[in-house]
Design a protein around this nucleic acid. Structure first.
Lengths: 136, 136
DNA sequence: TTGGCTGCAAAATATTTGCAGAACA
DNA sequence: TGTTCTGCAAATATTTTGCAGCCAA
C-alpha cells in the first residue's frame, strides 16, 4: 500500500490522517469491507470522521487504482485493496467473500456474436458456494 | 415463461393482471431491466401499479426461479428472465449489458486453498468491454 | 497562503415494509 | 369466502452532495 501513498502524492491528492487511516485499514485486508465497515474501523482512531470522507477517500483510491469495487454482493458495494488479477467466491449462507487467486482470461472464449458486438477489455468470475463454517 | 405461470399456480401464487404484465414484459427480454424499468413498462397497462407490486412480483419470480438477479451493475439490481446458464458483458461506456451464451464451469479450475474452504455450487462471469456503438 | 479536504446535514436513489381495501381462486 | 395481493405511504438503507471552516503542502 506504500505504492498508493506515492501515487496519491504524485497526483496531488492530500494525505490527511483520515485518508491514511483508510489506507492502513485496507492494506492487506481480505474481508471485502463495505463503506460502513471502513467507516466503523476508521472511527476508532478518528471519532469525528464522516461517511463523506470515507466515500471521498474510496473514490480517490479508485482513481489511482488503489481499490476496486466488488459487485458480488447485491445489497451493497464492497471494496478490495488487492489489485492483482483475481476473482471471488461468496458463501451463499453467510455472505463471506473469499479471494480466488487465479487467472482465467485465456479459458474464457467468447461466442462470435458477442465478439461482433463488443471489444472485450476484461473479465471477473463470481463463484458461489458454501464455506466450511456454514456446512453443518 | 409458460412454465413460470404453472409454477406460480402450483405454489399457490396468484396470477393478478399486474403479475401477468410483469411476466409478459420479461418474457424474452434481454435488456436486463431494473425494477424501475419494469415499473415504467407495467405502468402503461396498469397506471396505478406501485413499486411494492413490482418488487413483490420480482421476489415471487425469484422464488420459482423465473428471474435471476444480475449484479454486474453496482448502481442497482437488474433482472434477467433467461434461466439458461449464461454470462454477461457490460459496456463500460454506456452500461448496456449483453448476454454471453456459454458454459465455462469446466474451464474454471479453483486453487486448492479455495476448495479447502468452500464447496463450490456455481459461477458466473462478468465481462467488461466497449460496445460497437460506443467505440470512438 | 490556498486549494483541496473534512464533517455536518440534507438530499438523492434504491429497496422494503405496514396496512386497509381489493380481488383472485 | 378467505387468503393473498395491491397500492399508498412511510420507513429503511445506501450513497451522494452542498457548503462553511479547516488544514496539508
Amino acid at each position: 500500500m506504500k505504492r498508493i501513498i506515492e501515487e496519491y502524492k504524485a497526483k496531488g491528492f492530500r494525505l490527511t490522517p483520515q485518508r491514511i487511516a483508510v489506507i492502513e485499514y485496507l492494506e492487506g485486508n481480505t474481508t471485502h469491507p463495505t463503506a460502513e465497515d471502513i467507516f466503523i474501523a476508521i472511527k476508532k482512531k478518528h471519532p469525528t470522521v464522516s461517511f463523506a470522507t470515507v466515500y471521498n477517500t474510496i473514490q480517490a483510491l479508485k482513481d489511482v487504482s488503489g481499490v476496486t469495487e466488488v459487485t458480488i454482493d447485491p445489497a451493497r458495494k464492497r471494496y478490495d485493496p488487492n489489485t492483482k488479477v483475481h476473482h471471488h467466491i461468496v458463501c451463499v449462507k453467510c455472505g463471506r467473500i473469499g479471494d480466488v487467486m487465479a487467472e482465467y482470461a485465456n479459458e474464457l472464449a467468447l461466442p462470435k456474436n458477442v465478439l461482433k458486438e463488443f471489444t472485450v477489455i476484461g473479465s471477473h468470475v463470481d463463484f458461489y458456494g458454501v464455506c466450511r463454517g456454514c456446512e453443518n
